[in-house]
Design a protein around this nucleic acid. Structure first.
Length: 517
DNA sequence: GTCTAACGTTCCCGTTACGA
DNA sequence: TCGTAACGGGAACGTTAGAC
């Protein structure tokens, strides 16, 4: 049985999926009956009551470019990428795509373009800035946000996402990004490109045959034949529902797949008079979502909390393709989401499901270097490796190996990681011996010491370990620090360079309090 | 070859200036 | 007056050069 495809159209005020044959037979439930999607996301992240108020904003410029305005030495990522626009010699003005920087004056910042594509992203063209009405405390144990307001820069109120007054524990945009929250908003913001300010809804585009207030799309085979400035193509022969925000499964053939299942279920209920479980959507990551399917004569609608959770966790946005396949005939549908031909994985924080609060806190406190962002598979792998039953884990450190780590013969652990370890294990000596222990049982004697800048330098036998593990520059490693007893601190290094391969496990035994090996 | 220290770059965050 | 945007200093971290 072939898969059904559906295209998410519009924005996310409504999250049902509707399979239509072209006539209205069901009225979508009113939007206000559902809780705001973002609040569900916040609750998914185990957010608790806090004390402070802050505002989160999305900015449209490279943050470092703004920050370094007025400095004439190359300093920002943009300068590294495109040094020609910021010459070393004393320029008077520097222009970028959206800004003009003039020496000795404030930046004249352009607003969002009135037309054309929105350049909204969270890597190079946006930043997060958190304003607080109280002290900003760096650390996810401290409650910070009471109110999160996300809106476009220079757009009046109503032009963004009002997340309400949910209080959360994450204290920085960095934390939000790591749990995937930013990814959701990033995709939502792209949807705003069509919906724009104030939630006015889509304006009809001028593409041939497109009436973009109509939201039913033709089958996937026709995609591209009738492209629309808003992304998905539109079927002008289908009347528009009353809401502009729908996600639609196109094509009557697709309805047959789900319809056959629904009819099967209904026949079982009628014949055996016994309850039948709701259909379940299963993803490649083995995540399951119990959905509700209303099958009418003309239209089939997929909805329910499970469906909404699926949209949340995979951050489905307008224009994404959702493939649905009834693989076993047992009510379990295999579903997949594609965006631009790329299969989507769940948001990273979904990997935290099932963890205890203590372990969640450890993941939240994880120290990252060099801008590392773990996706769902990496996050899940990291969690599986980190929380072994061996020792009491006290710190997780995710690191991308540098050239010095590989060739320099030592590794420096950032001060942030050292502080976190000491906060849980007590003060460490300034120097000492360690035992490097991989999962094959090989042992290498090494040493550690504290550098003047607070970093912990692991040296001595460290190059030998690098050679044994065949680590290379830019390999991703997860280092977990375990506490055992009062005298020993174990450091467990897990190379994540190949997610499919067997784990390479290295156990550092850091001998503390001046003990001998 | 190993280790140290200095330097450069980036990021964070409080303060300040500007405009509505 | 208040909200927004930019500035500037300091901290963190990666790189590199030099000493041993």
């Amino acid at each position: 049985m072939g898969p059904s495809t559906c295209t998410a159209v519009g924005s996310f005020g409504k999250e049902d999926i509707v399979i239509s044959s072209g006539e209205e037979d069901q009225t979508p439930p009113p939007q206000e009956q559902r809780p705001p999607q973002q609040l569900r996301l916040l609750s998914e992240a185990t957010l608790t009551v806090g004390e402070f108020t802050c505002q989160t904003e999305i900015m449209t410029e490279p943050p470092s470019l703004l920050r370094y305005h007025g400095k004439w030495e190359p300093a920002s990522p943009l300068q590294q990428k495109n040094s020609s626009i910021l010459p070393r010699s004393n320029p008077t003005t520097v222009s970028t795509r959206d800004n003009t920087f003039k020496k000795g004056s404030r930046v004249q910042k352009k607003r969002f373009p009135q037309s054309g594509s929105f350049n909204i992203g969270f890597n190079a063209h946006t930043s997060w800035k958190i304003h607080t009405a109280s002290k900003v405390v760096d650390g996810c144990n401290d409650h910070l946000m009471e109110k999160v307001l996300v809106r476009k820069k220079n757009v009046p109120s109503g032009g963004g996402l009002q997340l309400g007054t949910k209080k959360i524990t994450y204290t920085s945009a960095d934390k939000l990004e790591r749990i995937g929250f930013v990814k959701v908003l990033q995709k939502r913001m792209k949807g705003w490109g069509a919906r724009d300010e104030g939630g006015r809804g889509l304006e009809p585009c001028d593409s041939p045959g497109c009436v973009h207030t109509g939201l039913i799309t033709p089958p996937a085979t026709l995609r591209g034949a009738n492209s629309c400035a808003y992304g998905p193509v539109c079927n002008p022969h289908v009347p528009a529902p009353d809401s502009e925000n729908l996600i639609v499964v196109p094509g009557w053939k697709n309805r047959q797949v789900l319809g056959a299942y629904i009819e099967h279920v209904q026949s079982v209920v009628a014949r055996e008079n016994k309850p039948v479980g709701a259909p379940i959507f299963v993803t490649r990551e083995q995540l399951e979502y119990e959905v509700m399917i209303d099958h009418g004569a003309i239209r089939t609608r997929i909805h329910g909390p499970g469906w909404q959770r699926f949209l949340d966790e995979y951050a489905v946005r307008p224009g994404d393709m959702v493939y649905i396949c009834l693989t076993r005939g047992d009510g379990r549908f295999f579903v997949e989401v594609e965006m631009g031909g790329i299969r989507q994985t769940p948001l990273p924080y979904i990997a935290l499901n099932g963890l205890s609060l203590v372990h969640r806190e450890l993941v939240d406190q994880c120290v990252y270097t060099r801008g590392i962002r773990l996706e769902f598979p990496e996050m899940r792998k990291m969690i599986r490796r980190a929380f072994t039953p061996l020792e009491d884990i006290c710190c997780i450190f995710v690191h991308k190996m540098t050239g010095v780590d590989i060739r320099g013969g030592y590794m420096r652990l950032p001060k942030k990681a050292v502080d976190l370890i000491e906060s849980k294990t007590g003060h460490m000596d300034n120097s000492g011996s360690i035992l490097l222990h991989d999962d094959t049982g090989a042992l290498v004697a090494a040493s550690f010491k504290k550098a003047n800048d607070g970093r912990l330098v692991i040296q001595g036998g460290f190059p030998k370990c690098v050679g044994q593990l065949e680590l290379k520059e830019n390999d991703l490693v997860v280092i977990t620090f375990h506490r055992r007893g009062m005298d020993y601190l174990y450091i467990d290094i897990d190379a994540m360079l190949n997610l499919g391969a067997a784990h390479i496990c290295l156990l550092f035994c850091v001998l503390r309090h001046g003990s001998d090996l």
